[in-house]
């Protein structure tokens, strides 16, 4: 079995060989994520005023994409994985936003 998989990885070429970052770089990424989380939590203590919601949404998206791209290697891997995963994600966002919209969910919030 292992031969088959190895074979596959080799045909995949250089991408598969070196995908990902070095351990040190992973730690940097994690530090950035930790810092972003700290900013998120700080919204609980400090009043961000009108920037409250946008800040949280941007930070959430950035964290999400960072983990997906670097920890899950999507940035370095074959594009097909990206298409498969993001098609599910984007479909979920569209469908469920449409669903909440029919309940006038976004209007209530103003």
């Amino acid at each position: 079995m292992s031969t088959a998989t190895e074979h596959v990885e080799h045909t995949d070429g250089h991408e598969a060989e070196h995908h990902g970052l070095s351990d040190k770089q992973y730690i940097y990424v994690a530090l950035i994520l930790a810092a972003l989380t700290a900013i998120e939590v700080s919204t609980y203590y400090i009043d961000f005023g009108p920037f409250f919601m946008p800040t949280l949404f941007i930070l959430m998206t950035v964290k999400f994409v960072t983990v997906v791209s670097y920890f899950m290697h999507l940035k370095f891997d074959n594009k097909l994985f990206t298409y498969l995963f993001y098609s599910g994600l984007i479909l979920a966002i569209c469908v469920y936003c449409g669903f909440l919209a029919t309940f006038k969910f976004f209007l209530q919030k103003g």
């Binding site: 596959v8 045909t11 995949d12 097909l80 994985f81 498969l84 599910g88 979920a92």
Partner: peptide, 19 residues
């Protein structure tokens, strides 16, 4: 595709978990 079946399957499963 030159990709591993298992990994393709896992990514699809995760795409489905988004829903």
């Amino acid at each position: 595709t030159g990709l591993s079946n298992n990994k393709l399957g896992m990514w699809m499963f995760l795409g489905s978990e988004c829903l």
